[in-house]
């Protein structure tokens, strides 16, 4: 069981922390991964996952984004702490 309010990812979820995400009007527009800047040119999808709330896990927000390098990423955010991770890389 994860401590109350702390995001928990299972072993299968290969998340990677993002050092910095820039937000405008509550929407991410740039993030930095491995020292590289990725400008978001399109938000392709957005959803929220209530997580395993019965275990005290917090809600997480997911963004599927297209970047200027033509990569498609899924970013996940823990809104309370403004922590961000890359959840999935498509190509």
């Amino acid at each position: 069981m994860s401590p109350e309010g702390i995001p928990h990812f299972s072993r299968e979820e290969k998340v990677r922390p993002i050092s910095q995400v820039r937000i405008r009007n509550h929407v991410p527009y740039q993030f930095f991964l491995n020292g590289q800047s990725h400008k978001i040119i399109r938000i392709m999808d957005y959803w929220r996952d209530v997580s395993e709330w019965w275990r005290g896990e917090p809600e997480l927000w997911f963004w599927r984004v297209l970047t200027d390098r033509q990569g498609v990423y899924e970013l996940v955010c823990h809104p309370q702490s403004n922590q961000w991770w890359v959840y999935h890389v498509y190509d």
Binding site: R42, M44, L66, Q70, V72, Y90, D91
Partner: peptide, 23 residues
């Protein structure tokens, strides 16, 4: 249409790439 720097035949990537064209 969209062109990617690396070609693929991986089913998941092909599906993903087509889906990006739906934006």
């Amino acid at each position: 249409k969209r062109t990617w720097p690396v070609q693929t035949e991986n089913p998941q990537q092909v599906v993903t790439r087509f889906l990006t064209l739906l934006s």
